[in-house]
């Protein structure tokens, strides 16, 4: 199965994701430029990378979410294509309306760049099936705008429907209810601020991120 990584001007984790996807699938992903209007034929998994797309102008992820390729990603996600957004990619997915809520400036105003404790809240999503519920992982974050916000009704719905995939196990950025990653209603779109693609090999200091890719890519038949 072919995978794809979207590349915006200002993306800087696209190659990290490409290395992670190749490590897990054995096949180099297609790198798809923001100005393209269609995803390549036969793509079974799309990753939206971290970085500072369009310089974070207006709001983080706001301009990228309106780019030509994102129209195609939104349309395909609606048909069930698995889409994974990490860090700036999570911001892009919320701005594109694929996931509810918004990522605001960190409560402490600092750029946070370190390994954090991450708890698997729901191990039954397509992305978390290789983890145990309640398992604590160590995964790096590197962001300035990771403070997840949604109104109380939306937060209740996310929790009630088991759509919180990951929570921080410590205070990181002020996120509502310590939410670090959520899935959409259909369960085929995951957005998260921490970077599992940076914990793939022992040389990274741990492999806690690898099972996310193994799980979801197995689910979609990679």
């Amino acid at each position: 199965m072919k995978t794809a990584v979207i590349v915006f001007p200002g993306s800087n984790c696209d190659r990290d994701l490409a290395v992670a996807l190749e490590a897990v699938t054995g096949v180099k992903p297609m790198m798809v430029w923001h100005a393209d209007t269609e995803l390549p034929q036969g793509i079974g998994f799309v990753a939206v990378p971290g970085g500072f797309s369009y310089g974070d102008y207006l709001r983080s992820g706001a301009i990228a979410a309106r780019s030509p390729i994102m129209r195609a990603v939104v349309e395909q996600a609606g048909r069930g294509l698995p889409v994974f957004g990490v860090c700036n990619g999570f911001q892009v997915l919320t701005e594109a309306g694929l996931l509810p809520g918004a990522l605001m400036r960190n409560a402490g105003l600092n750029f946070v760049c370190r390994d954090v404790a991450l708890t698997v809240d729901n191990a039954q999503t397509a992305f978390t099936s290789r983890y145990d519920a309640g398992e604590t992982l160590s995964v790096p974050v590197a962001h300035h705008d990771g403070n997840y916000f949604a109104d109380a009704e939306t937060l209740d719905r996310l929790e009630g429907e088991g759509r919180v995939a990951f929570r921080y196990g410590e205070a990181v950025n002020g996120s509502a209810r310590n939410i670090a990653g959520i899935v959409n209603t259909a369960g085929n779109v995951l957005g998260m601020m921490p970077h599992p693609e940076r914990k793939i090999e022992t040389a990274h200091g741990g492999t806690d991120g690898r099972r996310l890719f193994e799980g979801v890519l197995e689910t979609v038949g990679a």
């Binding site: 207006l58 706001a62 919320t94 701005e95 509810p100 809520g101 605001m104 916000f149």
Partner: peptide, 9 residues
Amino acid sequence: RQLLANTVI
């Protein structure tokens, strides 16, 4: 609504 403001926040 579509760009200048994010009406979630």
